[in-house]
Simulated scan of single mutants.
Amino acid sequence: MTKYKVVADFRDLQDGDHIYREGHVYPRKGKRLDEDRVAELAGSDNAQGKPLIVAVSDEGEQETSEGEVSVDSTRYPKHNGGGWYELSNGETVQGKDAAIDAEAKLQK
């Protein structure tokens, strides 16, 4: 099953106003994954107008007991699709070259 990491804090209006914090796993424990909701939150067609979650692979990432995702920074930038890349600090950047440059600055 695909897991998703929250990249920007948000209040989920379709989950009893549950607050998701950056770094947490979506959906929270005990909740069923809704593909339509995932598409909305992973894109910009939501109340904040930006991606709020990104898919995470099992490779290089592990969920902690607090529901956060720990990340191996050697696997960045990660392509999220649609020309968007995730940096090791959780930011998303459009364009591969821009993402590579931004990640290099983070690693200095």
Rank of each mutant, 00 (worst) to 15 (best):
E91H: 00
K29E: 10
E40S: 09
V54C: 12
A98G: 00
D45P: 00
E103K: 06
E91T: 01
S88A: 03
K5M: 15
D101Q: 12
A99S: 10
E63F: 01
D12P: 04
Q107K: 14
D101S: 06
K50C: 03
Q107L: 10
H18Q: 11
Y20C: 02
D45I: 02
D12G: 05
Y4V: 04
A47S: 14
H18I: 02
L52H: 04
D34Q: 07
G82I: 01
G83T: 07
T74C: 00
T2L: 13
G23L: 13
G90P: 01
S57G: 15
G90A: 05
V56R: 12
E68R: 14
Q48T: 08
D9H: 14
K31R: 15
G83E: 12
A99I: 01
D36V: 08
R21W: 11
S88L: 02
K108E: 14
D9T: 10
G83L: 14
D36F: 02
N80L: 15
A39C: 09
G81Y: 12
G82R: 11
R75S: 02
V25T: 08
Y20N: 03
E66S: 13
V38M: 15
M1I: 02
E63P: 07
S57F: 09
G60C: 10
D36W: 01
P77N: 10
D15P: 05
R75Q: 13
G83F: 11
D58R: 12
A102I: 05
E35Y: 05
V71R: 09
V7W: 01
G49P: 04
Y4N: 12
V54D: 08
T2G: 09
L13D: 10
G43Q: 03
A99V: 05
D36R: 10
A8Y: 12
R75A: 10
I53A: 11
G16T: 08
Q94R: 12
K105P: 00
R21T: 10
T64R: 13
A99M: 02
Q107G: 04
E22Q: 14
V38C: 15
I19H: 14
S70N: 09
V6E: 04
A55E: 15
E68H: 12
A104S: 12
